[in-house]
Design a protein around this nucleic acid. Structure first.
Lengths: 226, 226
DNA sequence: CGGATGCTTCGGCCGCCGCCGTAGGTTCAG
DNA sequence: CTGAACCTACGGCGGCGGCCGAAGCATCCG
């Protein structure tokens, strides 16, 4: 089976509006039940069940039983990365379209699978790059010695693992890279831990708290609009 | 309209096997005619025309008229990046092979339809241009008198035919033009004939031989890394 | 145990879309 | 001007696949 056939197989799965809704809402890395996903997909639970079976079969999602609930989440960061790259292509259209509820909030700060994106994510990447803590290239990134010290001090030392350490991820709304990979995940985790940002319901947008505004200014030199 | 709807719109376009074939074969940055694309898509020209219209409408492809031909290419590197990320999900083993094993080799030298591309292809174009053997413009190219003499001496006189004689082809990895058309084909053919380059299995990458390294240096003034 | 909840399977309906044949517009060669 | 090559527009056919109602398992609760 050729590469193109595989691409078509995956893309046709994402190409259905109901399934695209499901995948999009799972992009923040959370795990949701079939019923919740039926709601966001705006189709009946029966139909949703079929969609989820297909997505799981294709290894775009993973499922874990928990009592009588079934929780679904993206199978890997690769899937989130793929969705993000499709958004990057579809993005200009979205930007041209009328602003919808939450649009501006999403552009300010949101989660991208397990790291921070939007203006906040890009600003953090800029800050780290400008201070020579991180060197970003087209297809990878490295943390400098002083960068490691800064991260240790900040409390965001990435956990060891096989996953790529630091990777630039093109931001669909800002059209500039933010930091993904284990480093991106660690940064985001620490920001949530410090209460600098907080998840919002039913959206990937995150709220920046007052403490966050002060913290991002003090530690990263990033000034965010109040 | 939500971002998920946009994702579905783009993905459903890619989700058709014929269109996936078209996009995949264009991933190397070449521009192909509708007829050629009909062949790779394995559907009739009429059907292909419809597909190409949709892909162009969605700004995944761009089209330029050239006489009675219509050349199609990917609208931007973002589109190629998106396709790669889908491929990364579709076949981790396949993607790793293309990205890692062949990545650097592909960038160094590869075939683009029937001519040479990558750093080698761009370097040859630069050499011919700099010596006033070839004059490249945005939508075509001409060979000078001294250029014809050089080519005759080199043994790469293009065969007569209706096909475009000399055409700049934007190089996917280098983002600079290399030489396509009958001239590009003749050059590539002669390089293979001289044993300067050799095809590799299951990839568009080509290997540059030791004889090639010396030859490219002597005849074209092109120095290639060992 | 019986009812409620979460989820899946099955079956049938229906609309969308990919496909090609025919026909027509445009460009180029002789 | 004639014929050929390239591409597109239109119409009708056929099948894939999304959708829901009804029914069937699994799990939890009282």
């Amino acid at each position: 089976m050729s590469d193109a056939t595989q691409v078509a197989r995956i893309a046709s799965l994402i190409g259905d509006p109901a399934r695209a809704n499901i995948l999009s809402v799972l992009m923040d890395g959370r795990a949701l039940t079939a019923k919740e996903l039926a709601f966001v997909a705006r189709v009946s639970p029966q139909t949703t069940s079929g969609h989820l079976a297909k997505l799981t079969e294709a290894e775009l999602l993973t499922m874990e039983r928990q009592g009588r609930h079934r929780y679904f989440r993206l199978a890997s960061p690769l899937v989130g990365q793929m969705l993000e790259s499709i958004l990057a292509v579809a993005g200009p259209e979205t930007a041209r379209a009328t602003t919808w509820r939450g649009g501006e909030t999403l552009r300010t700060a949101r989660t991208c699978y397990d790291h921070l994106a939007g203006r906040l994510g890009v600003a953090l990447a800029d800050s780290l790059t400008q201070r020579d803590f991180v060197a970003l290239s087209a297809d990878g990134g490295e943390v400098t010695d002083s960068g490691h010290a800064f991260l240790r001090d900040f409390g965001a030392e990435p956990v060891p693992g096989r996953r790529v350490f630091c990777r630039p991820c093109l931001d669909w709304s800002e059209r500039r890279p933010h930091i993904a990979g284990r480093l991106g995940a660690a940064l985001a985790h620490r920001c949530f831990e410090l209460g600098w940002v907080a998840r919002m319901r039913d959206t990937r947008a995150v709220a920046i708290t007052d403490a966050g505004r002060q913290g991002f200014q003090a530690r990263f030199g990033v000034t965010l609009p109040g």
